[in-house]
Nucleic acid binder design. Sequence first.
RNA 1: GCCCCCGUAGCUCAGGGGAUAGAGCGCUACCCUCCGGAGGUAGAAGCGCAGGUUCGAAUCCUGCCGGGGGCACCA
Length: 554
Amino acid sequence: MTPDELAAALRAAVVAAVDAGELAVVVPGDVAVERPKNRDHGDYATSIALQLAKAAGRPPREVAELLAARLRGADGVASVEVAGPGFLNVRLAEAALGRVAVSVLAAGASYGRNDALAGQTVNLEFVSANPTGPVHVGSVRWAAVGDAMARLLEASGAKVTREYYVNDAGVQIDRFAESLLAAASGGPTPEDGYAGEYVGEWAQRVLDREPGLLSLPPDDALERFRVVGLQVALDEIRSSLTEFGVEFDVWFSEASLTESGAVDRALARLREQGHVFEADGAVWLRTTDFGDDKDRVLVKSDGTGTYFLSDAAYYVDKRARGFDRCIYMLGADHHGYVGRLRALAACAGDDPARTLEVRIGQLVNVLQAGQPVKMSKRAGTMVTLEDLVGMTGVDAARYTLARSSSDTTMDLDVELVTRQTSDNPVFYVQYAATRAASVLRNAGEMGIAEPSPADVDLSLLTHPRENELLLALGEFPRVVAAAAELREPHRVARYLEESVAKAAQRFWDECQVLPKGDEEIAATTAPRLLLWRAARTVLENGLGLLGVSAPERM
RNA sequence: GCCCCCGUAGCUCAGGGGAUAGAGCGCUACCCUCCGGAGGUAGAAGCGCAGGUUCGAAUCCUGCCGGGGGCACCA
């Protein structure tokens, strides 16, 4: 019996009690069971009676008693007790619990998926670091979290486009081009230019691609450095992200917004909706109509567009490309944008609550052995994505970044993540996955075929450690659904660590599966192998959602 | 001044109104000649402060204190 099946049985009990006139309440839409923290409180518990008591006008324990009486009859339920102020504590029949493993195996790689977002087309924009240098570690958090988010949304049935907004217009690109040119011709770094070591290397790559550049007139050379430098930067960024396991579907050029007419279309759209006005020689958007704290300039009095105009054109373009929902993952330093983006969507005639979602994530402090590392792209003192991956490997980096809530400013100690020991939770989880693999592999080598669920007596799985593991595996679909709905990938990681891997290690410790020496094959061998396969499946699927591998061996 | 995020164990962090607030590291004491010990068991140790809402608050609301980040016709 899975948690969802139990919740359905509980709901049926409430409905039956209402129909029988025992409870005068409206049946709530959400009738949930949860895993109690304390094992003495059964396999599952619910506070539904406490929630209904007030509306029913009856003492909670009384409500609990009458629901318990009805739930006791449900298939797969061994016992229901009323406890404390009115909790229902449910114990499942042993064979019923074993069916969790069957449902895991039946679903296989798709175990944990749901269809809450089926039919939704989502544009997920993340990273979008300026193409003026390598991806640095501050952006890596979004690469890890954003990609995990995309996988989670996909696991809930959404069609997700991963998009990178390339800021290839504006003065920072001019400075970048000037810096490359200066480095290539051996001159000093310009004022406000970029001075990292990479500038020299990238300048050389530009020359490798177009050897005659330095003999061009300065303005022409600068233009080539801008164009080719941008290509070099994007190639670099793309390849380091690819190495990190993050592939973007769309690299969207800011500059293209003007060329494609998207800017004009957006302006027209906003005028149509009646929120554009002119003042002080500039063109404004009246975002204060929708809660922004001040109106925003779209076109400056000198006739050039603002960055906000690009944002507007970009948003309108995304919607025109057919996305139901546009999710922006931004750093805390951009939180000031949220109000105006929302207002912008409203000005364009959308309901921002439906079409726009801005996730603000807090910054990462990078530490080296407890000491903060200051990062500045211009000064060239930074830890890049490639540096980090070089030190930790992709799995450890992605897992570490994805296991914390992005609401929290995170301290990432490079030295700690680098350690390949149990200090590092990713190894704990991966180790559980390799153990599962090794048991299954060893069984094969011993000539013990992997059993099929139909041939296995799951009621033999009665050991407390087996039950614990089964209960943990049963939670996976709900964890995935919650993580997707709340946009909190870290829930998956915590669940893998604290529920699955832990239960699997404990199961390992007490429940021998394969015969040793000249022992006979035990009756428990087949059901336990099945359980290991189920555990392996959940660990693979869960790590997969985080973009982390589940190795066969370590 | 205004806005956003955070404050939970010595450290890094979980904790969607529910029962005795959890994990890893570190610390203390144990277990293993066994399918891979990168394990397991036990222990010490904590919700910034003050109010409020609620049958019930780490969780929701208000104020204060502390830390971080923002408030351009910059990009």
